[in-house]
């Protein structure tokens, strides 16, 4: 084999990669925050009872879910300038990834809400509770625990999709590894380290989410 792993080079580039990891985590966190809120809006919009809106939102969710994220990132980044709106790589990246995952999260919420027995709605109606209170006080607390596994999966998913932001120049982990590669003509160390960093974060996170899910279930006596 003609490869040789160079430790000195590894120690040289590790600080840069770790700094970029911070950006990756920020991107994942911000994208996820957008997705959580937007996903809830998409889920609730499908429950207004207004058929036209429900169908439109469903189609939109389907569309987002069946087209590639990397293409959506390009779309958001490049289409603005065509109409005179300039968005920074970070802003377009967060919009695209947040929007993409909001479609997935809306499905998680929807399944969670639909899993709450119909009797709960009827009980709220019987004591004349407002729709807002019914959601906030009765439905959402019950819809949340079964949704945690799905929500957690997509947190890890969004984290693993952040490398796609490198295509529009967001200085996250993959982008930094590419830069190191083209400066030094060494790809073995940067790309392998990126893989290791991803594993080191995503595996424990997935484990923690499982623990958290169990904890919530016990807490709620389920």
């Amino acid at each position: 084999m003609s490869f040789n792993w160079r430790w000195d080079f590894t120690w040289d580039i590790l600080p840069r990669l770790l700094a970029a990891t911070l950006n990756t985590l920020i991107a994942a966190g911000a994208g996820y925050a957008i997705a959580l809120v937007l996903g809830l809006i998409l889920a609730l919009a499908q429950r207004t009872g207004w058929r036209g809106l429900t169908v439109a939102v469903r189609e939109f969710v389907e569309f987002i879910r069946s087209t590639p994220l990397v293409l959506q990132i390009f779309f958001v980044f490049y289409v603005g300038p065509q109409f005179g709106i300039r968005l920074s790589p970070w802003t377009s990246g967060m919009i695209a990834i947040g929007l993409h995952y909001s479609a997935y999260l809306s499905e998680v919420y929807r399944a969670g809400i639909e899993a709450v027995p119909k009797g709960q709605w009827e009980a709220c109606r019987a004591i004349n509770m407002s729709t807002r209170d019914t959601y906030l006080r009765i439905i959402i607390p019950q819809a949340l625990p079964p949704s945690i596994a799905g929500m957690g999966n997509y947190l890890v998913g969004i984290f693993k999709d952040t490398p796609m932001l490198s295509v529009i120049g967001v200085a996250e982990l993959m982008h930094t590894a590419n830069a190191i590669g083209s400066e030094s003509y060494r790809f073995l160390e940067p790309y392998t380290l990126v893989g290791v960093i991803f594993l080191a974060i995503s595996l424990p996170t997935a484990g923690l989410i499982r623990l958290f899910e169990g904890w919530v279930r016990r807490k709620l006596g389920l």
Binding site: M1, D161, P163, Y191, G195, S202
Partner: peptide, 21 residues
């Protein structure tokens, strides 16, 4: 390994690093 890392990382690794092996 394949679920814990990103497709893009795997793609670059297979295309750019595997030749070194």
């Amino acid at each position: 390994i394949f679920r814990g890392t990103s497709l893009l990382v795997q793609l670059y690794w297979i295309f750019f690093v595997l030749p070194l092996f």
